[in-house]
Design a protein around this nucleic acid. Structure first.
Length: 613
DNA sequence: GCCGTTTTCGGCCCGACTGTTTTCAGTCG
């Protein structure tokens, strides 16, 4: 936004909302540019800058909290900006933060942030991302040597100008140099399935050591996040008893996949493996394994709130134990269940631990029974050799049967996707006959439904005739082309498509999985609301490389009463079982069986699909 | 700057590791 302003784009007031005039004369809501994520980023950056500036740490914390709140809320902050009461209703947003949010919504920027940026420059924010580099060191480098960017730091190191500064020994300087190299090479997160594979390899190695009994991945991997920053592995067994960890630590440090060692202590070994994934292996005595598992699973926000609760009850919670404040005696430590129980709470799945109300719910014994993979009865989006799949209808049915599904729907592409050999009306009708025959041949072991994934054309029409669509059990409408449309045009297009009574499922509702292209922008809240009214379900494509909806999208869908259909969109029979990551996401969004359409038996699923008003 | 069964002031999560120290500050998760 700032950049746009600097580029002197013509801006005008239009219907009470700022709009930017594009070159072609088309206008775009400024709202589309200041989304919640941007709000969160601006607040978090302000917190970073305040820290460098040496501001009050509690004040800084409230900026961080507000940033988290902005990231997680389902309220569209830019839209709610003129309603102060709505902003104040969000936990962590008070009078000051509400004013900041309003300032961002109106101007795209935050005066305090601008002020600090003018003082230190934007480069300090990047400096903070270097490992071992915190606000105090950034402030030191700035005060002592006017270093404000990564490039300037690299230059200063090369020129030997860091020597002699406080806390800047040879090792520290080397560490910074290496950090710069790593940062320049790759700064990123890893997909959950990639991290999980690596965790499996390391666990297999560790379990060969006598005295290591179990290895549990914790952190964001256990919480089922889409991407993982680093890998936390908790290890326990007799070899992890206090003061006896030496041999086990040495064994961990000898893992052949280690690229370079970051740290090695009595109960922690950190290193990088291939592609720069950081792994933290922690060795813990069995008696405190539950406390450690709880602690390292997080999230941070969940843990902070949990510890506050512990304090109020006269306890203190650490990675070693839940203990009494007065005499330090252990109350619970060996299992997570014991710890949560001692705090008056029910145990909850790791996916729910994001401090989004689960603590209160667990304390009130009121946790929703969230959906799990075993609740999913069928998979209703898959392709066969008729379009761009690799297997026949029969092979897909057999593979689904092996996965334990009770039904599938065959949904090949329609004719508009010529490159996939999409079906025209004639071939679609022919395939219906084949699918019905296969359904009969399976003798009720698994139901095989007819279906198609039609393309939503630029004007919102579908690319197959309604008479053909009317004969399908499942019609998924997806956007596959024309990404140059504006937010309004894209929203209109999808709205029109789901008005078609034949459409049962909206596929790829955010365009997020359409790889190598920008996800398309549409007003998801508007679309979801209409879909809920119409009884159209929204697809959540669940393979890890293409998770369709993010957590916020899913929460929004639940809030607006729009049902979800989880699917694999398999093009290969081997991928039919890959809904495990999608299921984790559904749990993260607190979805129950009632929110997910394909948790029902075949008849209930079909009835649900047809429940259109 | 936020928040309140400790409510309009005075709190606000905790321990390990590292490197530079000679008792500890800073960073990280």
């Amino acid at each position: 936004m700032l950049r746009l302003l600097k580029a002197r784009l013509p801006i005008r007031m239009d219907g009470g909302r700022w709009r930017i005039l594009l070159a072609e004369g088309r206008t775009v809501d400024k709202k589309t540019m200041v989304d919640n994520k941007t709000m969160a980023r601006l607040l978090a950056e302000t917190a970073d800058l305040m820290e460098i500036d040496g501001a009050d740490s509690f004040r800084i914390r409230s900026y961080r909290r507000a940033a988290e709140a902005a990231e997680q809320t389902t309220v569209d902050l830019a839209e709610a900006a003129n309603d102060t009461a709505r902003l104040l209703a969000i936990d962590g947003i008070g009078k000051g933060m509400a004013a900041h949010l309003q300032s961002i919504a109106a101007t795209g920027t935050l005066p305090l942030r601008d002020e600090l940026l003018a003082k230190y420059g934007a480069g300090v924010l990047e400096l903070l991302k270097l490992p071992g580099m915190g606000p105090k060191t950034v402030a030191l480098l700035w005060d002592a040597a006017k270093i404000g960017t990564i490039d300037q730091l690299a230059e200063a190191i090369a020129a030997g100008r860091l020597k002699g500064l406080p806390r800047m020994g040879d090792k520290q300087i080397q560490k910074l140099q290496k950090g710069i190299e790593d940062y320049r090479r790759s700064a990123g997160r890893f997909r959950i399935d990639v991290a999980e594979e690596e965790a499996g390899r390391i666990a297999a190695y560790l379990l060969k050591f006598k005295g290591i009994k179990s290895v549990t991945p914790a952190g964001s991997l256990r919480r089922g996040r889409e991407t993982i920053g680093d890998l936390d592995l908790l290890v326990t067994g007799p070899a992890c008893a206090p003061e006896k960890t030496g041999p086990a630590v040495e064994y961990v440090a000898a893992y052949p996949g280690i690229q370079d060692m970051i740290a090695k202590g009595d109960n922690k070994v950190s290193f990088h493996v291939d592609q720069g994934l950081q792994v933290d292996v922690r060795l813990l005595p069995e008696e405190s394994y539950g406390a450690a598992l709880q602690y390292f699973t997080g999230s941070k926000a969940h843990n902070v709130t949990l510890r506050q609760r512990a304090l109020k009850m006269g306890y203190t919670l650490s990675e070693w134990a839940l203990a009494r404040l007065d005499d330090g005696t252990t109350v619970a430590a060996a299992t997570e269940e014991e710890i949560y129980a001692a705090l008056g709470m029910d145990w909850m799945p790791p996916e729910m631990r994001e401090n989004l109300g689960e603590i209160d719910a667990a304390a009130g014994h009121d946790l929703p029974r969230v959906v799990s993979l075993s609740d999913i009865r069928g998979d209703v989006h898959m392709h066969t050799t008729a379009s761009d799949g690799h297997n026949s209808i029969g092979e897909m049915a057999e593979a689904a049967l092996a996965c334990g599904y009770k039904y599938i729907a065959i949904t090949d592409h329609s004719k508009n996707l010529a490159m996939t050999n999409g079906l025209d009306e004639k071939r679609a009708l022919e395939q219906i006959k084949q699918v019905r025959a296969m359904d009969k041949r399976m003798e009720g072991k698994i139901r095989v439904f007819t279906g198609i994934e039609v393309d939503i054309l630029a004007d919102g029409a579908l690319d197959l005739d309604d008479e053909v669509l009317a004969q399908m059990d499942v019609v998924i409408a997806s956007v596959h082309s024309r990404f140059d449309q504006s937010r309004e045009e894209m929203t209109e297009r999808v709205l029109k498509a789901i008005e078609n009574p034949n459409v049962r499922i909206l596929g790829h509702p955010t365009g997020r999985l359409l790889l190598r292209r920008e996800p398309f922008a549409l007003d998801l809240a508007v679309v979801l609301k209409r879909a809920a009214e119409l009884g159209v379900a929204m697809e959540h494509n669940a393979a890890p490389e293409r998770l369709d909806l993010n957590d916020r999208d899913l929460r929004l869908a639940k809030e607006l009463g729009c049902r979800i259909v989880m699917s694999s969109d398999s093009h290969d029979s081997r991928n039919l079982g890959k809904m495990v990551y999608g299921a984790k996401q559904l749990r993260r969004a607190w979805l129950t069986k009632a929110d997910v359409l394909n948790t029902r038996e075949a008849k209930g699923f079909l009835a649900g699909l047809r429940a259109r008003k």
